[in-house]
């Protein structure tokens, strides 16, 4: 019998702590797939952030440095400068990257650090219990925006993939989703593309992945995926916002 589907080598054979319907597991798999594809598992140094993604080292079978909240791009900068021949990626959530870590992400991107950033946007602070994030949609109720995000007071959700695409150091910036098989297949492709940029030494690459957080959204897993398609994608359009690679 031919085996057509298996766990990527870069993922450990363990159960995750993620909630039912959470997309982190899926995104982990896509990232691990790409590590396997380029054969970089043994030369990878991952940088974990603070939030639900903090246990990166528990799931990925690669060397990992844990960064303080928001600082993963700065830590990754130090890692890459010390070990320029290693494959270095960060995996960060929206509170981490788009709020407390905006300075670090913008400047690492602008310097064109040769690293890959996987940014998981689920419009909320998952780990701390569903507070309002910089990506929370206008009107969305969270534990710290009980009346819904108020644009006049809280501002508009930040579109990081578009924002970073403006910077000179960024070689690749895309937004993908994993709410449907079709989107998932495209997500897999763009994550691979982002990794290819680093493997080929072409500069900073960034993939924003729209993700569901059913627990904090107070919905079922299926409703969560449906919300990604119905509410998030209209505001956070999928696509490639910058691609400086040679096709």
């Amino acid at each position: 019998m031919q085996q057509v589907f298996k766990r990527p080598q870069s993922l450990k054979d363990v159960q995750t702590h993620f909630c039912p319907g959470c997309n982190h597991g899926t995104i982990h798999r896509l990232v691990a797939d790409a590590l396997d594809l380029f054969g970089v598992q043994q030369t990878t140094i991952g940088v974990a952030s603070v939030g639900c993604s903090v246990f990166l080292y528990g799931y990925f079978d690669v060397d990992v440095v844990e960064a303080p909240h928001g600082r993963a791009p700065a830590v990754a900068t130090g890692v890459k400068r010390a070990r320029p021949d290693r494959f270095v990626f960060t995996y960060q959530g929206d509170g981490d990257l788009a709020a407390i870590g905006t300075s670090e992400i913008i400047h690492a991107a602008n310097r064109g650090e040769d690293i890959t950033v996987i940014f998981v946007n689920n419009t909320t602070y998952g780990m701390t219990g569903g507070q309002m994030a910089p990506t929370t949609l206008v009107g969305q109720k969270t534990s710290t925006s009980p009346y819904g995000r108020n644009k006049a007071k809280d501002g508009s959700p930040i579109r990081m993939a578009e924002l970073l695409a403006q910077l000179g150091g960024v070689a690749f910036s895309a937004r993908v989703a994993v709410d449907s098989p079709k989107h998932l297949m495209d997500a897999k492709k763009q994550i691979r593309e982002a990794f290819r940029f680093q493997v080929e030494g072409k500069g900073f690459s960034f993939v924003e992945v729209l993700s569901s957080c059913p627990t904090n959204w107070g919905v079922t897993p299926l409703e969560g995926n449906a919300r990604v398609g119905a509410e998030m994608i209209p505001y956070f359009p999928l696509g490639i916002f910058k691609n400086q690679g040679n096709p």
Binding site: I45, V47, V65, A67, P68, R71, A74, V75, A76, T77, G78, V79, K80, R81, A82, R83, S103, E104, I106, H107, R111
Partner: peptide
Amino acid sequence: GEFIQAESEVASINMLLGASACGV
């Protein structure tokens, strides 16, 4: 050697953390 004038003190100590984690 590598010299980076970082965007902030916060970033620079974390760059140090990352480089140091590599053993240099």
